[in-house]
Each structure stands twice: as C-alpha cells, then as structure tokens.
Design a protein around this nucleic acid. Sequence first.
RNA 1: GCCCCCAUCGUCUAGCCCGGUCAGGACGCUGCCCUUUCAAGGCGGUAACACGGGUUCGAAUCCCGUUGGGGGUACCA
Length: 501
Amino acid sequence: MTAGQGRASGPRGDAPPSEQTPLSGPVRLRFAPSPTGYLHVGGARTAIYNDLLRQSLGGAFVLRIEDTDRVRSDEAMTRQIEEALRWSGVAWDEGPFLQSERLPRHVAAAERLLAADRAYYCFCTTEQLDPLRREAEQQGRTFRYPRTCAHLPAGEVARRRAAGEPAAVRFRMPDAPVSWHDLVRGEVEFPAEALDDFVLLRSDGTPTYHLSVVVDDVEMRIDLVLRGEDHVSNTPKHIRLFEALDASLPRFGHLPLILGPDKRRLSKRTGATSVEEFRAQGILPEAFYNFLALLGWSPGDGRELMSRDELIAAFSLDRVSNAAAVFDPEKLLWMNGQYLWKLPLPDLLARVKPFAEAAGLGAHVDTPLFAAAVGLQQLRARTLVELAEQLQPYFTSELAYDEAASRKYLGTAGLPALLGELAARWAALDEWKKERLEESLRALATERGVKAAALIHPVRMALSATTAGPPLFDLVAALGREETAQRLERYRRSLAALSAQ
RNA sequence: GCCCCCAUCGUCUAGCCCGGUCAGGACGCUGCCCUUUCAAGGCGGUAACACGGGUUCGAAUCCCGUUGGGGGUACCA
C-alpha cells in the first residue's frame, strides 16, 4: 500500500482527520441490541457506557432494536430488553424503535445508491462464490468479491432482472484504505485489500445489517457510535456507506469484550450471562451498574464503590481499557454485599419481599418478625436470595438440628435441665427485652457454675438450628416469648433423647 | 489461512503517552484484633510487569520479534 494514508480516492474525501478534541456534548448516541433472547452482560455494559456518556454530556440516548432478519420480531423479547435496561438503571430518551419497521427506508437508500452508481446488482450465487472463498483461503489471501458483476452492461442487467433472475445489491467499495480515530483505541486503519464489495440488499430484497444500521444512524442523526469490539471490522464498511449516503460521520468507539472465567467469550456454560439471571440471583441493580462500569474502566483514583451520579461525573472514554476483561462473579457478590449492607431497612424490606415470597414466606412478609429478621440478617447475606433463605428458620418451628453440634453441647453436664430452667426463668420475665434476657441467662450460668457460652450455643441451636447467626439475644427478642418457649422445649426434648441413646 | 487488536498479582485494575519511588489499590485466599457464634469492621500477609532482543547511565514504561489470547473473515447481527 503506497497511496500513503489520508486523502484518497474516497468519493467525498476521506474520513475526517483524527479529532483529538475531547468529547463534548451534547451527543446523540444509541444502543442497538438484537433481540436474540436476553440482554447479555456485554450488551448491558455497552448500554451503561452509553448511558454514562449521555448523562454526562447531555443529548439523547436512542434505543433501537436490531431485529432485521429475525424470523419474527418477538415483541416479548423487545419488552424483555426494555425491562432489563430499566432495571439496570439505563435511561433512554427515544425509542425503542424497531429496525424491522424501517425496512422500506433501508431499501429506498439502497435504490438511491443504485441510482448514483454507488451500488450494483450482483447475480452471483453463494454456490458460485464459496469455492472461490476456499481457494483464496488456501492461497493465504483475503477473499474479496471478484467484482464479476461490477461492470455488467446496463442492458444485460435489465434483461436478467426482467427475466426474474435473483440479484443481490452490492456496495461499490472505493479502492482506498479507511481510517478513523477510535474514541477508545486511537487510530485505526484498514487497508483497501481488506475491504469488500459487501451486500446491501439480499437477493430476496431484504436489507443486510450494514445497510440498516447506517441508514438508521443517519436518519436518527446519531453522532456517537459506542459499541462492542466485534464491530471494529465493520466500521470501514459503515464509514464508506455514510459517505456514499452524503451523511456526516459519527464518532466511533469500540469497547473491549467481556470474557468468562475461562478467558473465552462469556457463555452460559460458565455461569450467569444475562441481566435477568443476575436479577434473579438477588443482585441489586445499583451494584450491577457499578460493577459493570468498572469492568474495563476505572476512575484512576482508586475509587470502586460509586453511585451512578459519581460514575457519570468521573466517566471518560479515554480511560477505557482496550484489553478484554474477565468477568469475576466473586467480586460482583462482594460489591453487591457492600450495597446490601448499606440499604435502609424499609428499602431492603421492599426489595427482599419478592424473594421471600418466592421462598414460600409470603404469609409472613408483612409481620414485625419479618422486619426484625431482615434487620438481623442484613449483614449476613450478600444477595437478596441468600437473605431470603436465611429468613426461613425464623418462620419454621420444625427445625432440623445439627446432631454433631448437639452432641458436643451435651458435654455440659445436665444441659437439658439447664435449658428447662432457663426457659422457666425467661417465661417469668416481666419485660421481653434483650438486656433482661441476657442478664437472666448469665445469672443462671453463674449460679450453676457454667460458662455463659455453654448455654448460649445450645440456645442458638434451639432457636435457629444453626451454629452461626446474629447476636443471640437479638434473636431471642425478635422471636418472642411464645415461640422461644416452644423451641427451647422442643430442643430440650431432642437433647434428652439424644443423651439417653 | 488472512486482516485487525490486546498483554501488570488467580481476577478487576493504577502506573505507560512525558523512561529513574519497596510496581499502588480492590476481589479472592490467609494471619491477628474485636466477639457468645457467623457476618460486618480494623490491622497485617500472599501474589504480577508473558518471553527474547534492542535503545538508554537507567525500561513495566520506547522499538522489533516470539508466544499466548481475543475479534473479524457471510446474501448473521
């Protein structure tokens, strides 16, 4: 390639010189997922970065569903995506627009290009092209469409079309390298040899992705395209199309991909990959947003726990990494815990509610015990699902005690009797308050010459069937007089039975 | 195969552009403290510049190569 970069035979001059100017607003940007099921974390992060930019620079965020070529554009899937975005905290200003509904405009654009001779009919079939492709590969060359139909006489084209011969429409790719200043990766250039006369309209008349995106971006006056790295190699095509359509070029930025723990492209095989799944796991949206914002970007000052507003204030594309990042679910869990622990109780109650209902605790959700239990377990759960699970013992008296632990407790002589005595004293308390409960238990321990802990642990087992949990007297206070008495009695019998064996 | 890109603790990363602090922070793992347990919290520890050549008084930082990884290579999006 000798042409030297820059200037070239591009019909309207070349891509603008690399603008080093920092991004300033307002911007019109878009997020354009294809409705292939659920919103992927990679897509979610792209949406979040667009959201961050839109919020910090002003302008508009356009949501467009790229549903061309979908067997049927499933409305449910579109709703799914909207819902996932809304949950994530991504705010869009316009849309969602369905690309499938804009097909006529795409076709019209192709016709304009045809009329301007920037595109041409191609009668070659896939069957004809495939062997050439393989041959090129074997010879170590990049395959390019040989332009068999690029210069057919107008008469022949008209005749063959009139005869009903199927024809695709191909873009006449200018024979020059394409370069642009990518907002995240800097100067990018593709040699002319790597560029092909790609298809605009399939032989069935439907537009391809490339045509649709560019036409839509033009008509929606998008001036900033921020998308995944998998689109880098499409960008030269798009740039040429913008030019051929006499449209001004948007700025482009390409985000590195998100990898799974196996360092390969994130897949369902290695864990959750969709926004839906994280939501169902009891991940908090603000933690999710925060975490994803930090996957491939950092403010540079060591901050990690950041609200959306803080992220908006600190975000800039030039600090986005250009290396792929591995998604670490462990760290997400940690971050989620950080958010969960700081939630005000009423807020947390509202959020666990659906999870508690799913866990079969629907009947208790509005009780004082429920609120108390959530408060006691808050610091002990990292997700809403964990929290809901931990609530279970508060509402079931049919606890399954840990036998090994129980045997250990029996090392304290006369433990069943001691528990009986404790139950009696507690039952006689005038005030069911943790301070009174604790005094009473400690007094009993002192009188009988045992350590308080020798009583505390069995009581915890009696009340919650677990060896771990919130401070005991908080637990007793929350459970209430009646429930505590019943559980102590039940455990006392169970212990007595165990020691009799 | 070919084109493009990437490379700092196991992971996310700061530092790189403008060569010169024990290569800093976070997750994880781990020790201690706190404590009736478990968490949370506090104080420590563990662990990285992929490799090889240059350039330089001096390289994680600049250049070349190798290796490894990723993306693309469609009448998919």
